[in-house]
Amino acid sequence: MTGAPEILLLALLLDAALGEPAWLWARLPHPAVLMGWLIGWADTRFNRGAHKRRAGIAVLCALVLGAGLLGWLLEVLLPWRMAELLLVAILVAHKSLVQHVAAVAAGLRESLAAGRRAVAMIVGRDTAEMDEPAVVRSGIESAAENLSDGVTAPVFWYLLGGLPGILIYKVTNTADSMIGYRTERHAEFGWASARFDDLLNWIPARVTALLILLTHGRFADWGAVSREARLHRSPNAGWPEAAMARCLGVALSGPRSYEGELRDYPFVHPEGNRTPGPEAIDQATAALWRSWAGICAVAAVLALLT
């Protein structure tokens, strides 16, 4: 059971045109919100006792099986292709990503405080004491990571597994974002979700790096990106970050604070500009659209071939 490239292409175009209409999601719960409610309930109900890791594995298995079954039922019971088109457009939210990243640049042009507020919407690190370059780097890093997690990976798993594939990926990624952090509460219960999310993102992260390089005519930098990505704290996020850093000429990652604790992470592309301004975020949003165009081109070729 694989996804239809022509449906994907139309979904990408629909999302680019409409984004996520506020009037719609003010009246209906977004699928990601429904997933979040379910995962939050499971966290409250099962994250207790002496066997939290086992409970987390069982919850993840239930989520994956449920998402796969739901996707299969939707494909069987709703042969109307428009329903599949709409669902894919909702789950591959590229325009929303661009808007959130662009808001950081707009905020910085207003004031540093506004830039901090905007970037706090898309990153999990401490933002209250960030200077302007730190805000800019955070916005660009979020653009690169979420291009992989929020666009390339859903596209990849939809093409590979249809609606079951994209729903399994989205529920796993949502679980990782909610319970996958190595906090005292979730170190055991969220272990399975974090590891499975790493597995599902392994190929898409590297595809995203390749996509960024190719759409900037920088394939020759693949070797450097590969070396720097392996120095990143994440097995996957370093790939799109390293590619974006190279194409924009900026240094990313580096020291940052989480919950008041400063962590001295190494820079990705350390010879790049370490004091970028809002214009670098503008370049990052342009890179997001270039990558979107590249995905559309691949979908169009696949549609013609099939």
Rank of each mutant, 00 (worst) to 15 (best):
H216Y: 13
R233K: 09
A153K: 01
V171I: 10
M35G: 01
P204R: 00
P235F: 03
L199F: 14
Q99L: 15
A237K: 00
L13P: 02
H232E: 07
A300R: 11
W80I: 14
N236I: 03
D43M: 06
T172M: 07
V250Q: 01
A187H: 09
T44N: 08
L70N: 03
M1H: 14
G3H: 01
L87I: 10
P29T: 06
R263D: 13
D264R: 15
T275E: 11
G272Q: 07
L73P: 04
E241C: 09
A114H: 08
R185H: 15
L200G: 04
K52L: 15
T44K: 10
S193V: 02
G161N: 10
L78W: 15
L14T: 11
V135L: 09
P133G: 06
G165D: 08
G71T: 03
R125Y: 09
L248W: 02
L69W: 13
A11D: 02
V298Y: 06
G115I: 05
D149Y: 01
A103C: 12
E84N: 07
A243Y: 01
A114E: 11
H30W: 10
A113L: 14
V298N: 05
V225E: 00
A245Q: 03
R54H: 13
L112I: 12
L70W: 05
L262H: 13
E145G: 02
L167S: 04
E259K: 15
D126N: 10
E110I: 14
L13E: 09
P255F: 12
G238M: 06
W191H: 15
I166N: 00
W239A: 02
A187N: 10
A242Y: 00
A17K: 15
H186K: 12
K170T: 02
A102C: 12
A93R: 01
R182L: 11
I140E: 00
A83F: 15
V136G: 04
H51A: 13
P31G: 04
L14A: 12
G36A: 11
A113R: 14
E132G: 08
D264T: 14
A192E: 01
G40T: 07
D282H: 05
L252A: 07
A229W: 01
A11Q: 01
K95E: 08
R81Q: 12
G36F: 00
L231G: 13
G115T: 07
I179G: 02
W41E: 12
L248C: 07
T275W: 13
A120Q: 09
G56P: 07
Q99F: 11
